[in-house]
Design a protein around this nucleic acid. Structure first.
Length: 485
RNA sequence: CGGGACGUGGCGCAGCCCGGUAGCGCACUGCAAUGGGGUUGCAGGGGUCGCCGGUUCGAAUCCGGCCGUCCCGACCA
């Protein structure tokens, strides 16, 4: 592997820094398949922790997992007009099978609404069959023009939830329930607090009535759409004949929702917390929370024994621990490696510590912190580590939130001012908006910023804007603009 | 698909202008020492120079065509 000593500085070239971090932390690598990546064990370990946390939250709220096929008949995708318009340019299509041309080509799923609602239509007869609350963990494929590891790849892993309900109200509640779950997950597990709210008409999902989004701010002040939750109305139900007989005996179309987050979250994590030395992982998602490095010299027996003992006591305290006893690497080389990989705590045990009954601790929260050792009595270090990890988690979230707020500009009243704010390092810029898509076009042309979200109530400014940022007409909603991934 | 750049051991590059036995750094293997912030020394292994064709006694180098990748735009979880 290429091992230049220093990473590109985060502030110098964010994109280059990002790529280096992802590759040198061994999260992922480019594959021979166009636009597709290989997720390596360290990266997959993070995704696995994410999966586990989300899966639990879905199940707590009554959802179940299921699996639907990878291939979807083209005719299904074509049924919903907006849906096919949105996805046609990025479909990968299978036209042969068994050495023969297929009568009907199959699309490799870009998302599974169509095949899932076609199946729901078979399963649902009565209101008693509703709601259906299913989720699937799967891969999907979108033939993207330009790709970046985790952020935009042709194939990616995600979860997609698809529900069917007897009433619009219930479906809307579901959409918001999931939005809340995503938000909690991003805040409490990832330490990546997003703005949440509605997408504008022009940014919503192909085939949805409403799209709720979670927009997180990265360290280069660009926004990342980190997840979405859609209220689909009866759009798909009508096309797939997903009907039920109501309590009153009427035949009605079901109401659907769909929602998803993807391995893009791993990229978001990198761009939210990484620094000049590499990755910084929130302890709850770190595959390894503490690495124990024995300092070897000559007579290693006692040191290795102590290392094992400390590691197993830490495991007993619920800490995910890895021992790094490789003897062809110097301790310093190991430190740098684990720093690049973002392990929150390092525990060092050497002969001197053995004599004094102590261990050295270093924490990855900052580059300086990772280099400052704190010597603690062994027992105290073990007892305190779980709490310290939790504190680490809280601090990460706090600093990400502080950064988001510090780069949020409110009360902007003209496009000139918006442009200025962005040039001055703003992330999210809040303005009034008259609801006209042409304002979105104009702002995009002039500033490259897009309307990220119509923020939910808790994010809106104390003083509600009255005029549209374009100067044309009254504001019908406060909105947040940003340049985005 | 429009604009720009680049294809040489695993990675990063030099060599090309001016044709003559393919080089450097990192990584890798072995041995020895070292070991509390990227450790030394010695000895090694590994490359059809993107592909096809042309010119030439001779092509990584010159010429033609093709393919691929990356960056900037339009799309996107």
């Amino acid at each position: 592997m290429a091992e230049d000593k220093k990473l590109t500085k985060r502030d110098e070239d964010f994109a280059a820094w990002y790529n280096e971090v992802v590759q040198r932390a061994e999260l992922a690598d480019y594959s021979p398949v166009r636009g597709s990546m290989v997720i390596r064990p360290w990266g997959y370990g993070i995704w696995e922790r994410m999966q586990r946390a989300l899966d639990e939250m879905f199940k707590e709220t009554g959802h179940e997992n299921a699996y639907f096929p990878l291939l979807i008949p083209m005719s299904y995708i074509e049924k919903e007009k907006d849906h096919i318009e949105g996805f046609a340019p990025e479909l990968a299509v299978v036209t042969q099978g068994g050495g023969k041309e297929l009568d009907e080509p199959y699309a490799i799923r870009p998302t599974s609404e169509t095949i899932i609602y076609a199946m729901y239509a078979k399963w649902v007869q009565s209101y008693r069959d509703l709601p259906i609350l299913l989720n699937q963990w799967a891969n999907v494929m979108r033939w993207e023009m330009r790709t970046r590891l985790f952020l935009r790849t042709a194939e990616f892993l995600w979860q997609e939830g698809h529900t069917a309900h007897a009433s619009a109200e219930e479906a809307k509640e579901e959409t918001l329930l999931i939005l809340g779950i995503y938000r909690r997950f991003m805040e409490d597990w990832m330490g990546m607090p997003p703005l949440t709210g509605l997408k504008s008409e022009s940014e919503k999902f192909a085939g949805a009535e409403r799209t709720y989004t979670l927009e997180a701010l990265m360290q280069d002040n660009k926004a990342l759409q980190a997840g979405t939750s859609h209220f689909l109305g009866q759009n798909f139900a009508r096309q797939f004949d997903l009907k039920f007989q109501s309590e009153e005996g009427q035949e009605e179309y079901a109401w659907n929702t769909s929602w998803g987050v993807s391995t893009r979250l791993v990229g978001g994590l990198v761009m939210t917390h990484g620094d000049d030395d590499g990755l910084v992982l929130p302890p709850r998602l770190a595959p390894v929370q503490a690495v124990v490095v024995p300092i070897l010299r000559g007579d290693d027996g006692p040191v290795l024994e102590k290392t094992d003992e400390v590691a197993s006591r830490l495991r007993g305290a619920g800490v995910r621990v890895k021992i790094d006893a490789r003897d062809h690497l110097s301790p310093g080389a190991k430190y740098y490696e684990w720093e690049r990989k973002g392990v929150p705590y390092r525990v060092e045990i050497g002969p001197r510590d053995l004599e004094k009954g102590q261990v050295a601790l270093a924490r990855r929260l900052t580059p300086e912190g990772a280099k400052r050792k704190e010597f603690l009595p062994e027992g105290q270090a073990i007892a305190e580590l779980p709490d310290r990890l939790e504190a680490f988690q809280v601090e990460l979230k706090g600093s990400a939130l502080a950064r988001r707020e510090a780069h949020t500009v409110r009360g902007v009243e003209s496009i000139d001012e918006l442009e200025e704010a962005l040039a001055g390092g703003a992330g999210f810029v809040f303005t009034g908006w008259n609801g006209d898509p042409s304002v979105e076009d104009e702002i995009k042309d002039r500033t490259k910023a897009t309307l990220r979200v119509l923020p939910g109530e808790e994010f809106r400014s104390a003083e509600t804007p009255t005029r549209c940022v374009s100067g044309e007409g009254a504001s019908t909603a406060e909105v947040a603009w940003a340049r985005a991934y």
